[in-house]
Design a protein around this nucleic acid. Sequence first.
DNA 1: TCTACGATCTTT
DNA 2: AAGATCGTAGAT
Length: 193
Amino acid sequence: MPQQFYARDALDVARDLLGKRLCRGAVRLRITEVEAYRWPGDTANHCRAGRTRRNEPMWGPAGCAYVYLCYGMHWMLNLVTGDTGEGAAVLIRSAEIESGLAIVRRRRAGLQGPPLCAGPGRLAAALGLDARFNHHPLHVHGGLEVCEGEPPAAILEGPRVGIDFASPGDRKAPWRLAEASSKWVTHRSRFQG
DNA sequence: TCTACGATCTTT
DNA sequence: AAGATCGTAGAT
């Protein structure tokens, strides 16, 4: 996807990322679940308190990766959105493995059992991501990139996961999006009927 | 420096 | 319901 694709409101980018393909070498994943961290005023957003060393990529140009370590053990992949100077991003939470299953299994050697690619920690592990991918431009060919794909027929919308510290309004905001028909979605019961 | 805690995942 | 496990942020 061109850089322009990412230079919009995180919620719009999140919706359009569903069904797109996330590729690194032979590993190709179809995105099934995402979360938008918007700007400004989103109290769940890592940038809520301004610029810090960790959230640096989020203030930079759209289309770059924001990769950070969560709970001391899981890498999270975010794609920076909006204009430079705004702190917004989309967290990629789950995907379906379209190719490169053997490589993904190898990378997940330390973890156990299926599902292989549901949940943001597993997804980053499947792609073999770590701090080296922080700031990586997704819109540049080669390395890690996002390619065209078929959009989902129906989309589920619900509150984001793991943000109990945010304001009541932001905790309720339906900014987690998922492909309704996909098996590769976490916390299904938390979506509206 | 010091310390509390987190956009998770697994097993119980 | 809780443990693994460590970088970050805000306070000192």
